[in-house]
Design a protein around this nucleic acid. Structure first.
Lengths: 206, 206
DNA sequence: TGTACATCAGTGAACGCGCGTTCACTGATGTAC
DNA sequence: TGTACATCAGTGAACGCGCGTTCACTGATGTAC
């Protein structure tokens, strides 16, 4: 029996028949779509909050093919986390300067969209309970974030630039995580973002 | 059949026979032991990382009795989180002054012992994906932390005390969470604590 | 270039397992008289 | 104060469910000749 299936999945949708083998290029593209989907879903729902089956369905596939691409869910977690950090790095590069980056990072829209936001703010808690491999990927991405913040810092200032950058990153990540951990309509949700933004801007412009 | 069972559980261990009804006082004590055990286990392993059965066993019981005390695992989560915040409040009250509190908070031993440490650093990520009820408990505890930090702040300083307190809390929580999300032997694990401690002390003593 | 066949990225049923929760049962506690 | 009985915090088997993972199968792609 030949059953035609239409896969609906962003961004480019694909159509094929059951049992049809796809080309190497298509397979690679499919794999990347799974990683990108996982990168967003993990940030939104946490590692434990995403089932392999749901993830594959969201990417436009059935769950069985998962293990053709990844050794385990944990292996994908590491890869998806790395992908999220890369995306975040490109996002940082698009910012005009550090103040603009801070305003975007500590904004209400950013708070509301963890799926496409900072991996640290979305997953730091989860990663603390993951394997060493996942933690290592996290550390690499975090180091990149610290360095790019340091580059945006004004010369001079109070204490070494590296130290100020580490402080700034801790403050940004902490504020965003805490804001998300509080009810949407609680005064602290907005206060955490605003107060921290003011404090961070003072640091970034003196 | 009468089968004698010895329950081994900290701090006071209890001995009884199967089917024996315990007194109201004893039942209340047992309930509190479950909450205290949950408070520690949730902080160590996250809400999803603790099974009801494991929790009851750790508290010295079998899993079946759980629903005599709590409506659901989620209801316990809210209560255990509140208990963790109370414990943290007592811990804060024991500190001589803000600098001492900061040194303890951003120390390696604190990083290594999430089970008896700050609920925010241990659970902020998880709470962001929990129900409104859990988030409300989290917000209450966080508000208490911010206020007690504000009280320890020196008069004057750069910007309103409340704003500086919010910044300080975000920095403390962020640094501890990030340090835990990085491999134990990664340079960032210690650097996050040390750099943030220096920055925070500057804020707390000017 | 054409032919034969191995490869392998898909599908979807099935696996064992652990989870949160329910339930029948127990018998000393707690209470009504 | 003593007696009869309902209560209820325990136990441990059982429940349905969703999870990560495995597997037999498919048939166009990719390759050996």
């Amino acid at each position: 029996m030949m059953m035609t299936i239409i896969i609906i999945a962003a961004p480019g949708f694909v159509k094929w028949d059951v049992g049809m083998r796809i080309s190497k290029a298509q397979a690679q593209e499919n794999r990347e779509r799974v990683v990108a989907t996982a990168s967003a879903l993990f940030r939104a729902n946490g590692f434990d909050g995403v089932a392999v089956g749901d993830l594959m369905k969201a990417a436009g596939f059935t769950h069985g093919g998962f293990y053709n691409h990844f050794g385990s869910k944990e292996a994908l977690a590491a890869e998806a986390l790395g992908g999220a950090w890369e995306e975040m790095g490109r996002e940082r590069a698009r910012a005009r300067d550090l103040p603009q980056l801070l305003k975007r990072y500590l904004s209400w829209p950013a708070r509301q969209a963890p799926a496409k936001g900072c991996p640290a703010a979305a997953l730091a808690g989860d990663v603390g309970r993951q394997s060493r491999a996942v933690k290592a990927v996290f550390a690499d991405g975090l180091e990149g974030m610290i360095q790019s913040i340091e580059e945006g810092l004004p010369k001079g200032g109070d204490g070494p630039a590296r130290e100020r950058a580490v402080n700034l990153v801790a403050r940004m990540v902490g504020a965003l995580m805490l804001s998300r951990a509080v009810p949407d309509d609680h005064p602290l949700a907005l206060e955490l973002l605003n107060a921290t933004l003011r404090g961070a801007l003072r640091e970034a412009t003196d």
